[in-house]
Each structure stands twice: as structure tokens, then as C-alpha cells.
Amino acid sequence: MTVLLFFVFAALAVLGAVGVLACRNPLHCAVSMVGTMVSLAVLYLLHHAEFIFAIQLMVYAGAVMMLVVFVIMLLDLRREESLTAQLAGSKLFGFVLSALLFALLLVPLAARLTGMTGDMSEDQLARVGSVEFIAEKLFGPYLLPFEVASVLLLVGLVGAVALAKKRL
């Protein structure tokens, strides 16, 4: 059942990704992207990552894609056809290059893992729960990266306002 659900949502994710590449209208691209992100959120749920599922839906499919759609609506949409017609050669080049990259990315599948495992075993998860386990790590050994991430978000916020302002 889990594997069946995996295949359904994997197909939806790939379909959405192809839609991002194939759609002429950027708004259609954005909607396909939302589809990919929601399908990936379901895949995270199948991998027992409930917290990541929730923030994938809220941060990615919600906030980030809303921002993208907002910017697309803000700017004018000129069609891309006239330009891409001249680019047949570079398109072919792109396809060949990414096929090579895909083959390269599949190479590590043949390698064996080291066999080292972490401490998030099934009974441990049943005892404390997945979100609590993440919180214990995040506010324990990973406290400094967590605080740096908040500073990074502040820098992103101020930077976005400063860049999009008409006059500094």
C-alpha cells in the first residue's frame, strides 16, 4: 500500500516538474510547481517525517510559491516562443547534458552504505514522537545553526525590502 502510494505521488511529482519545464505561461509553471511540492510533502509523510511534511506545505507550497505567484502577477507576462525558437541547438545540448547528469546521479546507488545508523529507532519514536525528537536535537546540539538560520531569515527580509524599493 505504501509503495503504491509512493508510485502515485512520485508520478504526480514528476508530472509537475515536467509541467514547470513545458508550460509557456509562468503562472502555469507556478501551479505545476505547487503540485510537485504537495506530492513531495506526501512522500515525506510516507517516510515518517511528519514535521517536514507540515513545514513543506506551509513554507514551500504556501509561502514561497505565494511569493512567486505574487511577483508573476506584479510583472507583465510576455510570451517566450519567439526566443526559444532560436535556441534549438542549446536545447538539444541541455537535454544531452542533463541525461548525462542523471546517469551520473544514479552511480552512487550501486555503492553500499556504511551501515552506521542513528538513534531514531521505531520504539524511540513511539516513546517521544517525531516532532519532539527533532526539537530535542534542534534546541540541543544544533542550537547555534538554528540561531544563525534566524539571522539569515532576517537578512533575507531586509535584503528583499532594500532591493525591491524604488529609491534607497
Partner: peptide, 14 residues
């Protein structure tokens, strides 16, 4: 596969 599709998009879209 998804990573490759992303790379392909960066290469072929304008």
C-alpha cells in the same frame, strides 16, 4: 530524476 529536471529547466528556459 527531479534534480535532473531542475537542471534541465535551468538550461533550456529563459
Amino acid at each position: 530524476l527531479l534534480f535532473t529536471l531542475g537542471v534541465l529547466g535551468v538550461l533550456i528556459r529563459r
